[in-house]
Amino acid sequence: MALLEVKNLTISFGGLRAVDDFKIEIKEGQLYGLIGPNGAGKTTVFNLLTGVYKPNEGIIKLDGQDITGLKTMDINKAGIARTFQNIRLFKALSVLDNVKAGLHNTYHYSAIEGILRLPSYFRVEKEMNERAMELLKVFDLDKEADYLASNLPYGKQRKLEIARALATNPKLLLLDEPAAGMNPNETGELMDTIRFVRDEFKMTILLIEHDMKLVSGICEELTVLNFGRVLTQGKTGMVLNDPQVITAYLGE
């Protein structure tokens, strides 16, 4: 059974079908790419998968559970986490606190426990600090734990956003153009990071990306969107050599 199964996903804005009859199946542990020209509907698909938009039609199943139309918070608790093309960190908070913000799916204390600083509050805070530091160490960010997130270099901000997403303990990680704004050296490092996350956390990953070197280097299968519809799907090498895909990208 697929970890993510999507059928007939459709949404319209003002009569325009931004996504039309979208379908995809992603197996557990896969590193899967969603590609297409600008405006093809890729980020709209991510917004549908994460509850930002509710589809007009279609079904989204995660690990057999129907999550169609659920709120963003409930979908995150069900097991989908994401990053964004434009980094959305809590820039006025520390690196450590950014990761701790993602841990509240797992660690809990009541408002009263927090206000009164009861022993249970300190116990949970200690556990959260320890887990957050473990995640930061994975990304070689533990030495910057007390830095403001805004003071990190761009490449490290990308890593911090992935660490925060992983803190929610997802089954499926959505990466929205993770290489955006990176230089070639940073992109190579990012490829290693994504592979490491998949292998170390036994994570299933779906990514949107325009950098075809990154896509061809790490994605096992691809879905290509064009004008909101699936153009083709399959193994990465086959898809990237499909004349329809080449035409869609070149605009011929």
Rank of each mutant, 00 (worst) to 15 (best):
H210Q: 11
A165N: 01
I194K: 04
E221N: 10
V52L: 14
Y249N: 12
K54Y: 10
L31T: 12
I112F: 15
N98K: 02
Y53T: 05
T83Q: 09
K156D: 10
L190H: 07
N185W: 01
E130K: 13
D20C: 06
I59K: 14
V224H: 01
Y154I: 02
G114Q: 15
R88C: 03
D192E: 14
Y53S: 08
A40F: 07
I194N: 03
A163C: 04
M182R: 00
S110Q: 14
E186F: 03
A165C: 08
L62D: 04
L206F: 02
D211Q: 14
P37A: 13
M238E: 13
D97C: 07
P184S: 10
Y32A: 00
D142N: 10
P37K: 07
K23A: 12
F90P: 02
G15H: 06
F227A: 09
R17Y: 02
G181F: 11
A2H: 10
M1P: 05
K213S: 13
L135G: 02
T10M: 11
A248D: 05
D20Y: 12
T232V: 13
M73D: 14
S120Y: 10
T247D: 14
T106H: 12
K61L: 14
L240Y: 01
I11M: 09
T187W: 08
E209Y: 10
L207A: 04
S110Y: 14
S120V: 13
E221D: 09
A132T: 09
R117L: 06
E221Y: 09
E220C: 03
T232G: 06
I208C: 05
I59N: 03
L103W: 04
I112P: 02
G33P: 03
N183S: 02
Q233H: 08
L141T: 01
V6A: 13
E220M: 10
K77C: 05
